[in-house]
Design a binder for these strands. Structure first.
Length: 370
DNA sequence: ATGACAATGTTACCCACAAT
DNA sequence: ATTGTGGGTAACATTGTCAT
């Protein structure tokens, strides 16, 4: 599935106001009289009594245009309701001013926030964002990336479902444009990839330290795939911190989103169950809450609960949920900046931006049960 | 300051020719 | 006579360059 998130006018300066809000654009028959097309620079030039080159100069604010000519052309633009044709501009420039964003699961609020941040920043520079959703399937991801490449997107933001698949890496290596990986470790053989990463260790360490301070010594981490950076980093940080603090940390991993509620219930019904649970991504929050209900347990009385990544509804929870938080909107903003700095202006090298995670305490963490 | 023109990538269309 | 193939060309909208 592909969703076009926003298509701002490529040249915002000439979105002249439409009186009464309706579209005044005139239409004309093309030379072969079989098709109706929108008003183009040719019509504007005729109306203004200048050449199309002069119209182009006025539209792009070229300095060598007389004031009188400038006024005649802008008047013609206004009268005809002329809007620049993005297809023609793409053809001439050899650039589409579109950035593609390959996402595994468009329904995940985390990606929605990342996309919003990216779209806002890109729009400020006259670029649009096109989302492609792979449903977590590698095959579909390859097809989507090929489609984005065929549509000649200028750059790609990547939140892909694999970091190592050779077909994917080959496809990315062939791509002629800047690549920005969002919390993924992608090493293509030829293409240099910029990265926006979260420092998962900071938040995870703080969370385990808070649990340790409350007397917890047996912790379970519900984790997404360890083959992708977020899961891998969270597991690694949890293991390192638990070892340093003398805690036992059990990792329950599973498919793309993590272990299912059934596996979590099984863990919670053990005679010597963990006294604290960390839901290692936002999709695991529901699974963790479901499992707690199924096992007849409540937090913080029976066990403590920490969740990773914010979901808007969480703030209505009572007791409040302790959260390892990051700013996905900021991630999107940074990803867009990284792609833009290699599309606009002097050539820039690929680089990595690391954003923090923070542990926000909540009432879901209490003293470890005896 | 202005106009003419080439160039961009893709595709529909036309024509000539070959094969069936 | 019909169908298929391949080559050539025009059309599309815009803009950079060069000439005047």
């Amino acid at each position: 599935m592909t969703v076009c998130l926003a298509v701002p006018s490529v040249r915002l300066g000439f979105c002249l106001p439409q009186e009464g809000g309706h579209d005044d654009t005139e239409f004309r028959l093309s030379a072969d009289t079989s098709r109706i097309t929108r008003v183009g620079v040719r019509e504007v030039a005729e109306r203004a009594g200048v050449s199309i080159a002069t119209v182009s100069r006025v539209l792009s604010n070229h300095p060598n245009v007389s004031r009188a000519t400038h006024e005649r052309v802008t008047a013609a633009v206004r009268e005809l309701g002329y809007q620049p044709n993005a297809l023609g501009q793409m053809l001439r420039r050899g650039a589409t001013r579109i950035v593609g964003f390959s996402i595994g699961d468009i329904s995940n609020p985390l990606f929605a926030q990342i996309a919003l941040g990216a779209e806002a920043t890109l729009a400020q520079h006259g670029y649009s964002l096109v989302l492609s959703n792979s449903h977590g399937e590698q095959e579909r991801e390859l097809t989507n990336l090929a489609m984005l490449e065929n549509r000649r997107v200028d750059g790609l933001l990547l939140s892909v479902t694999t970091e190592t698949d050779s077909q994917l890496l080959q496809q990315l290596a062939r791509f002629d444009g800047p690549l920005v990986a969002i919390d993924r470790d992608i090493a293509t053989p030829t293409a240099s990839v910029s990265c926006v990463q979260s420092d998962h260790a900071v938040g995870m360490t703080a969370a385990l330290e808070a649990l340790h301070a409350q007397g917890h010594r047996r912790v379970a981490l519900l984790a997404g795939l360890a083959t992708l950076r977020p899961g891998r980093e969270r597991i690694s940080a949890a293991n390192v911190t638990a070892k340093a603090l003398g805690m036992k940390c059990e990792v329950l991993s599973g498919e793309f989103a993590g272990p299912d509620a059934g596996a979590i219930v099984k863990l919670l019904r053990r005679p010597k169950r963990p006294t604290a649970l960390v839901a290692g991504n936002n999709q695991l929050i529901a699974a963790a809450l479901d499992a707690l209900r199924e096992a007849g347990l409540s937090y913080p009385r029976d066990l403590s609960l920490v969740v990773c990544d914010d979901v808007p509804l969480l703030r209505f929870f009572q007791p409040t949920l302790a959260t390892i938080r990051r700013d996905p909107y900021q991630m999107g903003t940074n990803a867009a900046q990284l792609v833009l700095e290699r599309l606009v202006g002097p050539a820039a090298e690929a680089r990595t931006v690391v954003l923090p995670t923070t542990f926000v305490p909540g009432d879901s963490v209490g003293p470890a049960p005896k």
